[in-house]
């Protein structure tokens, strides 16, 4: 395939006797949004964790721009530009929103063994941070302490931190989880705005969002990749529907 920026070949992950990821092969196209869907426990987060380097696969390879990065850890892949956001929001609560993003900008900008100047007063870093904050809709909250943000705002901040790292590939784990409808809508808007500039791998339960954002949808069931294709194909695919819904003709409860 052409333009694949991130590829997984025969990825398998076992936890004891449990096979969480079962021989998954997929390729992520550059500057496109690739959604991973499937029922709870299908291994979406586990797969994402292997792509991000948090979990080491039991078998299989992961290629980034054609280079084998299977053995690189979370930090190593972050330095290459593969960034993940977490299901459980993790931002620095005592920092202001601005500082949260400035730190990320600063990390992107080089090592942190500089002991004098406050990064928030370095014009280049401050501008970059303000830019990202505008883009993620947090422009009005710059000086608010992150700890007092609402849930949805925290998710936005989480996204902002990832964007500040100027990622080549952005792995998003349920960015809409726990959001109210209005917040989810705003997040969908935000992500839609990023689609042209970033490569995004998205794990999400909100199907409205998935089908609106994704260029490619892959369906996981019981750790196996059962289908991968354009959203319309996936919607129309009976096998996918059956597998995803359980068995026979059943709804998702």
């Amino acid at each position: 395939m052409t333009d694949a920026i991130l590829e997984a070949h025969g990825l398998t992950k076992r936890f004891g006797g449990l096979i969480a990821t079962d021989d998954v092969t997929l390729s992520i196209q550059e500057r496109a949004c690739h959604a991973l869907i499937g029922p709870n426990g299908a291994g979406k987060t586990t797969l994402l964790s292997q792509l991000s380097g948090e979990l080491r696969p039991s078998a299989g390879r992961i290629l980034f721009e054609g280079r084998d990065v299977t053995m690189a850890g979370l930090g190593g892949r972050a330095r290459l530009g593969i960034l993940r956001s977490f299901q459980i929001t993790s931002v620095c609560d005592d920092f202001s929103v601005f500082d949260n993003v400035v730190v990320a900008c600063q990390i992107k900008n080089g090592h942190g063994f500089r002991f004098w100047e406050a990064p928030r007063h370095v014009p280049a870093l401050a501008d970059a941070a303000r830019n990202v904050l505008e883009r993620t809709g947090l422009g009005d909250l710059t000086h608010v302490e992150a700890g007092v943000l609402s849930h949805g705002q925290r998710r936005q901040l989480e996204l902002a931190i990832a964007l500040a790292m100027q990622p080549r590939v952005l792995l998003l784990d349920e960015p809409m989880a726990g959001m109210g409808p209005a917040e989810a809508e705003r997040m969908t808007e935000l992500l839609a705005g990023l689609r042209a500039d970033y490569t995004v791998v998205l794990v999400e339960h909100d199907m409205d969002a998935v089908f609106r954002l994704a260029d490619t949808v892959s369906v996981l069931v019981g750790g196996r990749l059962v289908a991968s294709g354009r959203p319309e194909e996936i919607k129309a695919n009976d096998a996918v529907r059956d597998a995803y819904l359980g068995h026979e003709e059943e709804g998702v409860a």
Partner: peptide, 9 residues
Amino acid sequence: SRFGMIVQA
């Protein structure tokens, strides 16, 4: 400083 911000983070 940059160092301190990382440490605090």
